[in-house]
Every structure is written in structure tokens, then in C-alpha cells.
Design a protein around this nucleic acid. Structure first.
Length: 887
RNA sequence: GGGCGGUUAACUCAGCGGUUAGAGUGCCAUCCUCACACGGUGGAAGCCGGAGGUUCAAAUCCUCUACCGCCCACCA
């Protein structure tokens, strides 16, 4: 019965209008409180904390991927009926945020020093209130189903309390200490940074050979250095103890060029005899190695460069000069005074600040450190013992490598934006007070106290995120229920910065692993594999992608490429491709809607018709596969499964198979199939929902306007659908048969309008019966007028194409269309392929080793295959002989 | 210097010990058939980087090698 135009208009529009639907649906979800957990629920729990984006941030591809994967997990577990919570929030991002606000101040002609600490911090908070919600709004556009009522910020009162508690208790245990060490100083950010915040880059530089005159002799030692400007900090020269060339000088004194200072010549294993002249200048204040040598030999430390990146008053006429200019000037002085011998090119690594890429200056300074080795040992053990699992596990080696060689973590930063270190120094007795409560006077002498001005590394508070967000150190209900969290999803680039430190801190402070699984996803790159960056101009803006293709297509694209690899090369074309998948699903639903109408009944009893039995069987298998893949965080395979199933089975076959029923069968059969279609569609939408929440929700809401939203449905269990092996076999047969006729039509260029009348020669009476029963449907799929089983002894009509299949032959009479040459070519090609396969099977079966060593079922399979192939080849050969009759 | 990835169809990737190696995009032919031309149908396209080895069987495991990329590292 043809549908009237008006009826069609009452259904779904031709395309999904995502830009209208997305904000509407999201608002409905959020206002409905559907993202909130249900703590009273019994059964499994699922909790996850977001890797907090910087408040200064704007959504980039890394966030988009991160959020998509977490949302897939969150929505999946929610549908599964788990008590699910996903906690969102932002990081205060000390250096980055301070820099942004300082730039804004500069535009007003202000400086933070002039403003003063209190006023400045106030300004940063203002900035945060105004712009800090950008990123959070953008996460919503992706469909992130976070519980916004639990949103946290690393500088919140509660989280600050956690930071303070951790700092004080680690201090009390001796795991946090203050000391004078060599650290990495960023002259641009004007703060210390930790070792992992320094990136190394090879640079073309020079090695300079300089004269160091020996005391009271006309002789000199030649020293090779890459940093001549640091000579003002030299406090020794060192040689290898086994170096016979220089041994005589041991214990003597040498003069530091351009100064009157005399320094000892010492022996140390560290010095290489091969490099340079084998004679090393030791500058403990400005080189990590020299610092260690200095310690072993009790050398004094002389600062040549200060914290503003200026040369100190130890540097004679260079005092006050910027480091970047000091080298050239020093070299000039050395040449003028005959200390310079020569220079040669040198390639070596230069340390750069990871935030601003300025060359960092190693210098000795008083800072706070976390003694990391004891914490690292436990963190390493947790993964070794499988209490925390990394996915993919190949990252474990890298993780162990870092933890096993960990150095103390410099956590103080010379900034104002962040958690101020809870340490006070007595102005009278030099006592240090570290305390949970702000002290008023010195605990030992009652003297006046001054607070340490520094703040903590941003990563210090990030390390506490999984438990600080849940209320720790208070014993909150959330902490009790949702900690440890289920899984952490993040990019592998912050494995050390964040993941390892969370495990260290979590184990130390809560005596539990902060999460059980860690999913390390790839980094999003452009189509050529380059890192995306604004400066390179190759960055794709996720917001533009969202505008153009919608969240569902974008999410699907990201997830479909989120395998256990390192690179995710994002190709804009691919998003476009998957937006067609969204359209396909929409239109399949549109078709269903026309037949089902509003609020259709869902099938309650097992189906009787073949298409329904078949799709039930497949759906059961698909659900099981999805569960397996998601349990292993194989997002790419999950996407692949639903794509293939939806498009090539549900749409291409199931919807086509039921058309004859919907149009032609009796009322009863129609109703039964409609109920099955409704049920299958609902569950299809449900299993796709985690990755494409918007379009699935919208379809569902249109179909069931008075029902609860799709995201509150239950994820179907695979046992919900009966598996019917016969239906699967029959489907394979019908598909084969249909494809054979279609192929014949295509090969001979028979126009679609011309109806065919294929004849099928087969021996299995069950299949023959099925074929006759399904004839109406098959005619439709093949574009045929009639279809029949060949009589006993009947042979192929003269002008007919033949397809030889395992279960028989399909003859498609093509009077007027048949072309002997084309048919001969077809058969020759077919025969060649069969012969090749037969040959390979025969070879296997004539191999004694194969017969005895391969598993029996494999051998048996090969035997069966050979028989079937042989049968087909004979049939092809007979057909080849018959071709003569055609002409 | 150490470690870790990658190398499979024109492009982006999946497969990681057992049928004839798959997908998306692109390409060719054809069809606007009553969900969808953001579609249907059919098709072309790969000595699975190279060389050895293990195995009855290798894209898949091992060794070596080439190229690309990443991370770590205190020879100035």
C-alpha cells in the first residue's frame, strides 16, 4: 500500500538536523539530571575522573578524543545499569594562566609586581570566572555526560585542603624537604621547573678551547667548554684519575681566566678522556654534573648567573649582562686577553622550557623537593603486580624505566597563581614551620614568621585529582563509594607528568590504587603525521568540525581510529564519510518510522519469520562482540562492528528482507515483524548510543515521544535474542543466491527494468523449500519476475549465465543479452581461481607432515574444501563446454 | 648512548600463527526502484619495507637490516 505524502511528512525529516538537535538534547539531559550517579543502586559502580583541561584552554583535538572515549565508557556503563559517575573539572595551570593574565595586564600597562600579590591573584580569579568556562562549554558540545554538579577546580577550597594535607604529611614523614640543589630555571617564566618539564633539542653549537694558566708556572691547561660565560662560576678543573697525560697536575692550582681566582685540579671518574682535551672545568652552580662533582669534592658554589638571567657581580665587567649576550662578550674578553685558543662545531642537546621553549638555565637555588624514590617503588610495584593495568601494556616498560630511575621532584615555583607552600620561616631563630593550620608565631621561639612566597607545581595538585575531587581528606560518601576510580583515560604524553604521579600519590595517601585501568590513547596528528599546532597552522579546530559535521560524526571518527597505536592521523574527509553513516542510520529509522508509527509495540515472543529470526541471531552475536571489545578498550573495533552491522546487515538485508512482509503479508505477520523491527531498532540505537548519543537519542525520542530518554534504557544482553543457527545458514544461502543473479545482470549489462527469471539447480531439499517460501522477497532483491528450482535432469538453458556455488548452480536465462565472449571470460576467470585454490589444498593434503601435525579439524576442513572446490570446477568446465551452443 | 613505535590497496588504517589478507575514503561502470544519490548494485586495485630463520602452516613468531617517527639520557 503506497504511503500518502502527508503520512510521510509526519515522520522524520529527510536528514538529521544536528545543529538544532544537539543543544536541545544536551540541555534536556543535563536538566533532567541524567548524568548524576545513583549511589543507592546496588550492583557494579563505574567512576571516572576527567583529565582536567587548563582553565585557560580551548578545546583541541586531544581533548576531543579524550572526552569522546570517556563518554563512550561512561554512557556504556550507565546503559549497562552501573552506578556511573564522571567527574569533570579544570586545572588552574599555574604558569600558563599566570602568563595569560600577565599579558592582559601588560596591555593595560600594568605589571604584577606593581599590582602586588593579593591584587594580582584577585585579577586571576576574575579572569577565571569570566573565561574559565569556555572549555567547559566546549566539552558539553561534544556530548560529554559528566556530572556537572560535581565539577571541581584544582584551586577549590576542598582540593586546596587536600594539597595542604599531602604536603604537610609528606613533610612530616621526611618525604618533602627544602634544599639547595641545582634546578632548571626558566628565565622567561622566571621560575624553577622540574626535570620532566625540560625538553631537549639538538642544536648546532661550538666547543671552545680555553687556556687555564697554572699557578707559578708559564704553563697552562687547555679546557674545552660549550659555555665559556660560566667560567666565572668555575671552582675546579677535573681530569680522569687514569689520565696519564694530566696526572702530574693533580693537586696543583690553576687560574680561572678573566679572574684572579685559583682553583684546584682534581680527579674524578666522571671526566671522559676522549672528549675535548680530557680536562673539564667544574662549575657546580650551573651544570648538573658539575654540581655532583662539586659535592663529592666539597667545592664551593659560585653563582655566575642569577634568577633574572643576568650575570652576577662575580663576573667582573659582565655583571648585569643578560645571559644570552654574555657568551659573545666573554669570548671577546678571552680573545683580547689571550685565553682563547680555538673553537670547533659541536652538536649537543639544549634544555628548553616545555611551556615557553626558552633555553633553561641550570642553577643552584633553594627549592622544595619531593623525595620520589620511595613513592616510585610502590607505584612501580602496583603495575608490576597487575593492580593497575596499562592499555596498551606496551607502555609498561617505559613506565618502569622512568620510575626506576626517578629523581627528586622540584615542586616549588616562583609564581603567585597556585597553592602557596604552607611553610613559614622564623625571622628570629630561622626555624621552619610547616603546618596544616596557618601559624601565627614561631613554635620554638615565638618569633615573627614569614610565609614562603612560592607556590606548588601545578602537577602536584593534579597528582591528587582522583581522590581530591571525591572529597579527600574528608571521609565523604563519594570517596567511600567511587574510589578507587574504574579507569583513567588520557594521552600517553602525560604518562610521567600525571599518570605515574597519581599512582605514587594515590598509593601513598590513600593506600589504594587511584584507578584500576589506564587507557593511553594516541595523539591526534594531521594527515601527514605532524603534531598539530597553531604555529604550524596545521591544527584542525574541533569546534569547526562540530559546526560542520555534528558531534556524532566527529566522535565516531575519533573513536573509530582510537586503536592501541600512538598516532591518530585525523583526516577531515573521514569525518565527512562518517557523517554519511549518521545519515544512513537516520534514514533507516525514517523507513522504520513510516511503518511503525508512534510508540510501536516491542516484540515479546520469539520471532517466527525468517528475517526476524536471522536479525535476532546476528544482534545477539553483535552485542556479545561489543561487550568484549569495550571491556578491552578497543574503541576502533567497537565502531567497526556497529558500522558493519548497521549498514551491511540491518539496512542492506534486514530492511530489504522485511519489505515484502510489510507490504504484502497478512495483518498478523505484519504486526509480528513490526514488533521485531521496533525491538531491533531500539536496541540498535542503544548499542550505538555510547559513540553517537545525539542522533540515536533523537530518533528514539521521535519514535517514543512519551518514553524516558534513550540514555536511560538498558544495554541489551546478548541472551535477550535467540540465536538460530539455521537462520544464519539460510541467510548465507539467500545472500549467495541474490548476489549471483545480481552479478549476472551486471556482467551482461541487463538494464534494471528488465525482469529476470533465474532457475536454481540444487540438491538440498530444505534449501529448495526455503527458496520457494522466500520467493517474493528474493524476486524483489534480484529484480526478478519468477524464480524456480530446476527439474530433475533439467540442464542449463542455452542462453543463460551460470553461477556455480558450493550448494548448486544458478542459471540466469538472458535471451538477447548473453554474450558468448563475456561468458567465456567469466568462466575462465572463475576456473583459474578455483584451480589455484584446489592446487593449494592438494599440496597441503599431500604433505605427510601437515596430515600428522596440523590439528584434525583444520585438516578435515581442507578436505571438505577440496571436495567442494572440485565439484565447482567440474561444473564450471561443463559450462565452458556448453558455451559453444550459445553462438 | 639507551628504549619504544611504525612500515599492509591511491590515501587513512584494521588484521598479529591456520579458508581465497579486510574496512572507510577515493577510483571505474551502472541505476534518481516507493528510508537514504549523504543512496543502490557490480567491479578494479596489495610479491603485507628488505634478507634470513622457526613451523606441517608466517602479514602474523624470532634474528638481522633499511627507512620514518617518538621518548629517555649528566661526555662538558
Amino acid at each position: 500500500m503506497p504511503l500518502s505524502e502527508t503520512k510521510a511528512d509526519e515522520g522524520l525529516e529527510k536528514n538529521f538536523n544536528f545543529s538544532e538537535a544537539e543543544p536541545r538534547l544536551y540541555q534536556m539531559w543535563e536538566q533532567g539530571g541524567y548524568f548524576a550517579p545513583e549511589p543507592k543502586k546496588t550492583g557494579p559502580k563505574f567512576s571516572i575522573v576527567i583529565p582536567p583541561p587548563n582553565v585557560t584552554g580551548n578545546l583541541h583535538m586531544g581533548h576531543a578524543l579524550d572526552v569522546t572515549l570517556q563518554d563512550i565508557l561512561t554512557r556504556y556503563h550507565r546503559l549497562k545499569g552501573d552506578d556511573t559517575v564522571w567527574i569533570p573539572g579544570c586545572d588552574h595551570a599555574g604558569i600558563a594562566t599566570q602568563a595569560v593574565v600577565e599579558r592582559a595586564l601588560a596591555a593595560e600597562g600594568l605589571e604584577r609586581e606593581k599590582l602586588g600579590r593579593e591584587k594580582f591573584v584577585e585579577r586571576v580569579w576574575q579572569w577565571k570566572e569570566t573565561y574559565g568556562s569556555n572549555i567547559v562549554r566546549q566539552l558539553r558540545r561534544l556530548g560529554a555526560s559528566c556530572d556537572w554538579s560535581r565539577e571541581r577546580f584544582t584551586l577549590d577550597e576542598g582540593l586546596s585542603k587536600a594539597v595542604r594535607e599531602v604536603f604537610v604529611s609528606l613533610y612530616e614523614e621526611g618525604l618533602i624537604y627544602r634544599g639547595e640543589r641545582i634546578i632548571n630555571w626558566c628565565p622567561h617564566c622566571r621560575t624553577a621547573v622540574s626535570d620532566i618539564e625540560v625538553e631537549h633539542e639538538d642544536r648546532a653549537d661550538y666547543l671552545y678551547y680555553l687556556k687555564y694558566p697554572l699557578q707559578n708556572k708559564g704553563e697552562y691547561l687547555t679546557v674545552a667548554t660549550a659555555r665559556p660565560e660560566t667560567i666565572f662560576g668555575d671552582t675546579a678543573l677535573a681530569i680522569n684519575p687514569n689520565d696519564t697525560r694530566h696526572q702530574v697536575y693533580l693537586g696543583q692550582m690553576a687560574q680561572v681566566p678573566l679572574t684572579s681566582r685559583l682553583v684546584p685540579i682534581i680527579a674524578d671518574d666522571y671526566v671522559s678522556m676522549e672528549f675535548g682535551t680530557g680536562c673539564l672545568k667544574v662549575t657546580p652552580a650551573h651544570d648538573p654534573n658539575d654540581f655532583l662533582i662539586g659535592r663529592h669534592h666539597n667545592l664551593p658554589i659560585i653563582l655566575a648567573i642569577d634568577q633574572n638571567g643576568l650575570m652576577t657581580n662575580q663576573c667582573g665587567s659582565l655583571a648585569g649582562v643578560e645571559v644570552s649576550k654574555a657568551r659573545e662578550l666573554t669570548l671577546k674578553l678571552l680573545e683580547d686577553n689571550d685565553f682563547f685558543i680555538k673553537s670547533e662545531p659541536l652538536n649537543h642537546a639544549v634544555g628548553l622550557c616545555y611551556r615557553c621553549r626558552t633555553a633553561v638555565e641550570p642553577l643552584v637555588s633553594k627549592q622544595w623537593f619531593v623525595s620520589s624514590a620511595p613513592l616510585a617503588l610502590e607505584a612501580s610495584k602496583a603495575v608490576r603486580e597487575g593492580r593497575v593495568k596499562l592499555h596498551p601494556a606496551s607502555w609498561e616498560k617505559t613506565y618502569f624505566e622512568w620510575l626506576d630511575n626517578i629523581r627528586d621532584w622540584c615542586v616549588s615555583r616562583q609564581l603567585w597563581w597556585g597553592h602557596q607552600i604552607p611553610a613559614w620561616y622564623c625571622q628570629r631563630c630561622a626555624q621552619t614551620v610547616v603546618s596544616r593550620e596557618d601559624p601565627t608565631i614561631c613554635t620554638s621561639c615565638g618569633g615573627e614568621l614569614q610565609r614562603d612566597p612560592d607556590v606548588l607545581d601545578t602537577w602536584f595538585s593534579s597528582a591528587l585529582w582522583p581522590f581530591s575531587t571525591l572529597g579527600w581528606p574528608n571521609k565523604t560518601a563519594d570517596l567511600e563509594r567511587y574510589y578507587p576510580t574504574s579507569v583513567l583515560v588520557t594521552g600517553f604524553d602525560i604518562l610521567f607528568f600525571w599518570v605515574a604521579r597519581m599512582i605514587m600519590m594515590g598509593l601513598k595517601m590513600t593506600a589504594q590504587e587511584p584507578f584500576l585501568d589506564v587507557v593511553l590513547h594516541p595523539l591526534v596528528r594531521d594527515e601527514t603525521g605532524q603534531k598539530m599546532s597553531k604555529s604550524k597552522g596545521n591544527a584542525i579546530n574541533p569546534l569547526e568540525v562540530l559546526d560542520r559535521h555534528g558531534a556524532d560524526a566527529f566522535r565516531f571518527t575519533l573513536a573509530s581510529q582510537a586503536g592501541p597505536t600512538r598516532d591518530l592521523r585525523l583526516n577531515a574527509k573521514r569525518v565527512e564519510g562518517y557523517s554519511k553513516f549518521v545519515n544512513k542510520l537516520w534514514n533507516a529509522s525514517r523507513f522504520a518510522f513510516r511503518h511503525l508509527g508512534l510508540e510501536p509495540l516491542l516484540a515479546k515472543s520469539p520471532p517466527s519469520s525468517f528475517p526476524d529470526r536471522w536479525i535476532f541471531s546476528r544482534l545477539s552475536q553483535v552485542i556479545e562482540e561489543i561487550n568484549t571489545e569495550i571491556a578491552q578498550y578497543h574503541f576502533d573495533r567497537y565502531c567497526d562492528i556497529i558500522y558493519q552491522f548497521t549498514w551491511y546487515e540491518f539496512c542492506d538485508w534486514y530492511l530489504e528482507l522485511i519489505k515484502p512482509i510489510l507490504y504484502q503479508e497478512s495483518q498478523n505477520e505484519q504486526e509480528a515483524t513490526k514488533a521485531c523491527l521496533a525491538l531491533v531498532l531500539c536496541d540498535l540505537l542503544t548499542i550505538i548510543h555510547p559513540v553517537m548519543p545525539f542522533v540515536t537519542s533523537e530518533i528514539y525520542a521521535r519514535l517514543f515521544p512519551s518514553a524516558a530518554p534513550l540514555m536511560l534504557r538498558s544495554f541489551p544482553q546478548s541472551s535477550k535474542y535467540q540465536r538460530d543457527q539455521r537462520a544464519l545458514t539460510e541467510a548465507a544461502f539467500l545472500m549467495d543466491l541474490t548476489k549471483a543473479v545480481r552479478q549476472a545482470r551486471s556482467d551482461f549489462g541487463v538494464p534494471p527494468a528488465a525482469k529476470l527469471s533465474p532457475i536454481v539447480s540444487l540438491s538440498d531439499p530444505l534449501l529448495a523449500e526455503l527458496m520457494i517460501k522466500q520467493a517474493p522477497l528474493l524476486l524483489n532483491l534480484m529484480g526478478a519476475a519468477s524464480l524456480r528450482v530446476a527439474e530433475k535432469g533439467e540442464s542449463k538453458p542455452k542462453e543463460a549465465a551460470v553461477n556455480i556455488l558450493d550448494w548448486g548452480q544458478v542459471w540466469t536465462p538472458l535471451t538477447g543479452h548473453i554474450d558468448a565472449e563475456a561468458e567465456r571470460a567469466r568462466l575462465t576467470k572463475e576456473a583459474l581461481k578455483l584451480e589455484k585454490d584446489i592446487d593449494s589444498a592438494q599440496k597441503k593434503l599431500s604433505n605427510q607432515d601437515y596430515l600428522t601435525k596440523a590439528p584434525e579439524e583444520i585438516v578435515e576442513e581442507t578436505r571438505e574444501k577440496l571436495v567442494a572446490l572440485d565439484k565447482r570446477l567440474q561444473a564450471v568446465k561443463r559450462s565452458q563446454e556448453l558455451i559453444g551452443d550459445l553462438t
